[in-house]
Amino acid sequence: MNPYLPHDAVIVDRVQESTTIFTLRLAFSDPVQQKRYAFAPGQFNMVYLHGVGEVAISIISDPERESLYDHTIRVVGRVTRGLAQLKKGDHLGIRGPFGRGWPLLEGEGRDVMIVTGGLGCAPVVAVINYILHRRERFGRLTIMQGVKHAEDLLWRSRYEAWARMPNTQVIIAADAAGKNWPWHVGRVTDLFDQVALDPGNTVAMMCGPEGMMRAVVGNLLGRGMSADDIYLSMERNMQCAVGHCGHCQFGPHFICKDGPVFSYREVQPLLGEAGF
């Protein structure tokens, strides 16, 4: 199998989530390949736009749904701008899944705390849905989401629905909020004292800007959590997705292959060091 070779996939459905964010629901054209395709939450695909190039995008759908998989994409560059123009029925190229996903097995039987910042919540949506569909296997679920502007909050109705689930706490904050904002104004890290954390029995999973993640890590460590129980989804320039092209090298790791999900202990030495 050539890990560099994409395969044709078709857009089964497309949802505009916000002005710059959209979700593509995809299936491989080859039904045998679609049936064989298996991934774990936190893994990613390389999504290819014809004639333009590839971009690494995390998979947010449920891994046990066999017929489809979803990518939620924000317009940030050349490839994503082009992907945003595609419609239902259009084709693109997919190769994957790549990387190491979230530690869901380690989380079973324990409390799970999910912290996201900015618009970076897509990689953990897969985890939230995974846990809520298998609610009995996990302890208390805490979801913390911080955004800059109130209108940046994607899937507001989903957060509201999640908040009504049993044994689930949802904490949301916006640095700048408008009218009708029912949640906190300020940083999400202001609200840590609202969380009843059981530090020895919790797995924390987070994604978003590294500065935010470092602030959260500091708080969690301060409250007695182990660096082995705190997981971060890392981002770097990724081109090959198999640890060969060198762009995502981060100390001893290739983010694309050894991650993108790492325990804090694994990335701690260089995290926050400008230039790495």
Binding site: N2, Y4, L5, P6, D8, V10, S29, H50, G89, D90, H91, L92, G93
Partner: peptide, 12 residues
Amino acid sequence: LWKVQRDGGGKL
């Protein structure tokens, strides 16, 4: 590494 061809129906 590879070549891609798009047919009339858009399939790659």
